[in-house]
């Protein structure tokens, strides 16, 4: 089953064509890597898919429905969750609140429940807290739970952002350079988490600038260059594709 189908998505910034008719599909259960030299349009493609920016043309289908232009909050609720290239945990909010914030369908986030202090809200809060603690344990940052996220190290922030996105129980997780600026041992740790998530059935699309980490991890690579899909296929094939090698070495 095709979980995500991107068709002919285009986006320009003034005269700069960042994404020039990108089309690809992702099957449920896959781990797909999206690579390409700087300025190839990877992040812009991501932003268009996740509606963080509007695309000029093209359609995005997710989980059987046309979600082109559906606002980001609605995509998150449908199960398409993304992270950002620069870790963007909420620094002025504690680790616990970062996690709890992401809990979906929380009645306490509606004014009436908040003022009325309903039991529905309290129950959801307790359940969300339990789930948050589980995830923080898995990601080994449970000890930081009451710390403000701004006080975490770079690596811990990466882990928090990943853990937080899992609070939403995503069907498709879009990771924008999860290994950027991460030391090798933490890279291995994150790779382990990603593989575990995939084993549980989660579909992942990962942007990465460097090839090495991805080739072992992903089922398939999509190569972007100059805003277009240059090639797509298993890592082994891609590595031998001359066009790709040229794009990287030439770019």
């Amino acid at each position: 089953m095709t979980l995500l189908a991107v068709e002919d998505v285009r986006r320009s910034f003034g005269s700069l064509v960042a994404v020039d008719g990108v089309s690809f599909g992702i099957e449920a259960g896959e781990i797909v890597g999206m690579i390409g030299p700087n300025g190839a349009g990877k992040t812009t493609t991501f932003n268009c898919i996740s509606s963080v920016i509007d695309s000029d043309a093209g359609t995005v289908r997710f989980d059987g429905a046309d979600v082109t232009g559906v606002p980001p909050y609605a995509l998150a609720r449908r199960g398409m969750v993304r992270t950002f290239q620069q870790t963007r945990e909420l620094e002025t909010v504690t680790v616990a609140d970062n996690m709890l914030l992401a809990a979906p369908e929380h009645p306490g986030e509606r004014a009436w429940h908040a003022v009325g202090r309903t039991s529905a809200s309290a129950q959801r809060e307790a359940a969300a807290r339990e789930r948050a603690m589980e995830l923080l344990e898995v990601f080994d940052i449970a000890g930081m739970v009451e710390e403000y996220a701004g006080n975490l190290s770079g690596g811990q922030r990466k882990l928090l952002e990943l853990a937080r996105s899992l609070m939403l129980d995503p069907k498709l997780l879009l990771l924008d350079e999860p290994f950027a600026g991460v030391n090798p041992s933490l890279t291995n740790e994150i790779v382990g988490h990603i593989e575990a998530l995939n084993d549980e059935g989660m579909t992942l699309l990962i942007i990465e600038h460097e090839l090495e980490t991805l080739t072992d991890l992903v089922d398939r690579l999509i190569v972007l260059a100059d805003g277009e899909v240059l090639a797509t296929g298993p890592p082994a094939d891609i590595m031998e594709n001359e066009e790709v090698v040229d794009a990287y070495l030439g770019g």
Binding site: Y73, V81, F84, R88, E89, L90, E91, T92, V93
Partner: peptide, 15 residues
């Protein structure tokens, strides 16, 4: 408070 910290992230978390 999440909105104050980062609107876009808050939106992508389903709010």
């Amino acid at each position: 408070r999440a909105i104050r910290a980062d609107e876009q992230v808050t939106e992508t978390l389903g709010k």
